[in-house]
Amino acid sequence: MEEIIRQIGHIYRSLEFISNTEFKSMGLGNNLYAYLVRIVEQPGIIAGQLAIEMRADKTTVSRSIKKLIAMQFIEVRYETDNKKEKHLFATEAGAVQYQHIIAEHQYSDRQLIAGLEPNEIATLKRLLHQLDVNSYDEWQSVRNGKERNYD
């Protein structure tokens, strides 16, 4: 069973290394590209929801948001009646970078599924979705302070 986690880890680390290397020249290394993608695809997302989407802690998300603002890839807009709620939007420069990132993601998707039949791709999508649901439940549980029982 541990082989599943190991293989998922191999795939994740390979893709993370490639993306961080390719996007470093854009200033989007250290997974900043992933935050930008979520913000472009969900205009107006708030930091708390972004933390859930990224499966990250709020401090990490806050640092990433500050970096993206400093690079002028995103901007913050506040609610008129609630100044604490920051809505995040991509700037024109962020939208331009997003196009490059998505092209890389699409290329990587094609490389990963090369040699798979359409029915295998559909099965893979279904199984990955279930793994995502399962991991999210575990992440939420630990995030909320629960200890897992390994027995």
Rank of each mutant, 00 (worst) to 15 (best):
L124M: 15
Y78M: 10
H100W: 02
M71S: 13
I74T: 08
A93I: 10
I4Y: 06
L50T: 00
D81F: 09
L128I: 07
N82V: 11
Q42C: 06
R77Q: 11
E41A: 15
R148T: 03
M71K: 13
E104H: 13
M1N: 09
E104Q: 13
Y78F: 06
E85Q: 05
G9W: 02
L124V: 02
A90W: 03
K86G: 08
T21N: 14
F23A: 12
G44Y: 09
V133N: 02
K84I: 06
R110G: 02
I8E: 13
T80L: 02
R143I: 00
Q42Y: 13
I4W: 09
A95S: 14
I102P: 12
Q130E: 11
E22C: 01
I8K: 09
S64V: 03
Q49A: 12
H100F: 09
A70G: 12
I65E: 08
P43Q: 02
V61T: 12
K83D: 01
A70T: 13
F73Q: 05
K146E: 12
T91N: 04
D57G: 10
I113H: 01
L128M: 13
E104R: 15
L124T: 03
R55I: 01
A56M: 10
V142D: 00
Y107M: 10
L50F: 00
S141A: 08
L68Q: 00
G115F: 09
N134F: 01
Q42P: 00
V76P: 07
E147K: 14
L15N: 15
K66M: 13
E138D: 03
S135F: 00
V61Y: 14
E75W: 04
V142L: 07
F73M: 14
Q7I: 10
Q49L: 08
A51L: 04
E53P: 06
T80I: 15
G48D: 14
N149K: 08
R126P: 00
I46Q: 10
A95P: 03
I102H: 04
S62P: 04
G44E: 02
R6W: 02
R6L: 09
L131F: 13
Q99Y: 09
L127A: 07
K58T: 05
E2F: 04
L112E: 10
E2T: 12
E16M: 03
E138K: 06
S62V: 04
R143F: 05
E117T: 05
L128Q: 01
T60M: 00
Q111K: 15
Y12W: 15
G29S: 09
M71T: 07
R63I: 00
Y78D: 05
Y107A: 09
R148I: 15
N30M: 02
G9K: 11
E138S: 01
D81R: 05
L32W: 03
Y98W: 03
I18A: 09
